[in-house]
Simulated assay, not measured.
Amino acid sequence: MKTKTLLGGLVASLMIVSGAAFAQGPVRVEVYKSAYCGCCGKWVEHLRKNGFDVVTKDVDDVPAARKALGMPDQYGSCHTAKVGSYSVEGHVPADDIRRLLAESPKAIGLATPGMPQGSPGMETSTPQPYETLLVGLDGSARVFARH
């Protein structure tokens, strides 16, 4: 009798936890970009196609938005974003963002500096190798992923 009660409680708890996780829905990404940048819009579409809930905010001063999110200018690109407690700078692939959220490192966030050809939103017939950097709380960076 006690085993059935324990098992029933365990199953009910698992249903509640999985239901709560399902109710959370897609991860929200706030993107700060120029209204006139086409590649930023393509990156937004990349995120949406990969299941993110993206809200765009057109700004006149992307570097100011980057600074407000805590990302050092040296990692700058044409747009910046906020995902949970992290900053995401530039054309970072959706899979890298998912990995960041899963691993939850103590960091400012991710950056793909510049506008590398072949990165999401910068697709081309001649892609170049590029790196996604994990930017630490002290502003230093290390390679997070190679593409």
Rank of each mutant, 00 (worst) to 15 (best):
P105K: 09
T112M: 04
I97W: 01
Q128H: 12
E131R: 14
R66N: 12
P116F: 10
T80A: 03
S87D: 10
S125V: 03
S85D: 15
S119A: 15
E103P: 01
C78V: 05
E131T: 11
L100P: 07
H79L: 09
K106I: 00
C78N: 00
G114Y: 02
Q117A: 12
S119L: 12
T80I: 03
P120A: 04
K82I: 07
T80R: 06
E89Y: 13
I108K: 10
G121K: 02
V83M: 02
H79Y: 08
Y86H: 04
A68P: 05
L101C: 00
P72Q: 00
H91F: 04
L100H: 10
L110S: 07
L101K: 00
G70P: 10
G121D: 06
G70Y: 09
P129A: 13
K67S: 12
T124E: 01
A94V: 14
P93F: 11
M115G: 00
E89I: 13
G114C: 05
M71K: 05
R98E: 12
I108S: 07
C78D: 01
S119M: 10
T124N: 07
R66Y: 08
P113Y: 14
L100C: 10
M122C: 06
Q74N: 14
G70T: 12
G76T: 15
Y86W: 08
G114T: 03
E131W: 02
A68Q: 13
A94C: 14
